[in-house]
Nucleic acid binder design. Structure first.
Length: 256
DNA sequence: ATGACTCGCAACGCGAGA
């Protein structure tokens, strides 16, 4: 079972790229972030024509997440529990082939010291509670998405240049570790050890051409799915194309 | 360089992203 995640920075602008990647990479499940549209405007027909069902959590202009699946999927929730007042479309969860799968768009949190940063940390605490509950229920899961966290300096092209950024703050990284320490596995790291590999490159200043990026998109596996981890990688091909998203897909393969 | 691009909105520049 191949599960991938990709922040597409608008599904409307990236529909051809997504369809092309579905055809070439043939994932069983593709998690999308920043679809930037309401559910009613999501191109479900075009996606369906490629053989994929979809579950959508949309909003106007910003954010928005989706789960595409070649297999039947049943949405289990369309918001991260823990704050009924949180209207941002950043979390959707579904069961596919006996695996609970979530598409996550974790808040960016910049600038640090603002309510945006506090929202990020609070959101991460809610995510930790969700992970704790899934583990307690012994539900096998894969939580994939744009975590907006570069877990270590290895995941940052120039750590010195990023010291004031919410994506690398000690509080951000500690919150990420609190989640990981519940017993999760970072699929890319489990397969590739300390390889230096980014998943996002700024559109500006030739960051892509200079390979000046961050590794902020992750697939986090529960113990039962980590047992089944056969392979994982970052696919750089979509980032090379014209009109690319600033993120590129990350995928993992689970044995059946 | 508090920059640089790219997106949606529906402005005819702005906010947000990371």
């Amino acid at each position: 079972m191949k599960i991938a995640t990709w922040n597409v920075n608008s599904i409307k602008s990236r529909l051809d790229a997504v369809i092309g990647w579905l055809r070439s990479a043939r994932p069983d499940v593709l998690l999308l972030q920043e679809i930037k549209c309401l559910e009613e405007n999501f191109p479900s027909l075009e996606i369906s024509a490629e053989g994929y069902r979809s579950a959508i959590c949309g909003q106007r202009t910003y954010s928005g997440v989706a789960i595409l699946s070649r297999h039947p999927l049943e949405a289990t929730c369309r918001a991260l529990p823990g704050d009924d007042g949180d209207a941002q479309a950043r979390y959707i969860e579904a069961d596919v082939n006996g695996v609970r799968i979530a598409s996550i768009y974790l808040p960016n949190g910049n600038p640090i010291g603002t309510e945006k940063f506090a929202y990020k940390l609070a959101w991460m605490e809610r995510l930790r509670a969700r992970v704790r509950d899934l583990l307690a229920a012994e539900i096998p899961f894969v939580l994939g998405g744009d975590y907006n966290i570069a877990p270590a300096d290895l995941d940052v092209h120039d750590p010195h240049a990023w010291t004031q950024d919410a994506l690398v703050q000690p509080e951000s990284r500690a919150a990420f570790r609190r989640i990981m320490h519940l017993g999760l596995t970072d699929a890319f790291r489990a397969v590739h050890g300390n390889a230096r590999q980014f998943t996002w490159w700024d559109y500006r200043a030739g960051a892509w051409q200079r390979n000046e990026g961050l590794r902020i998109d992750h697939l986090l596996l529960s113990p039962q799915t980590a047992d089944r981890l056969a392979d994982a990688a970052v696919d750089m091909e979509p980032r090379k194309r014209d009109k690319a998203s600033d993120h590129t897909p990350v995928w993992c393969e689970l044995t059946e």
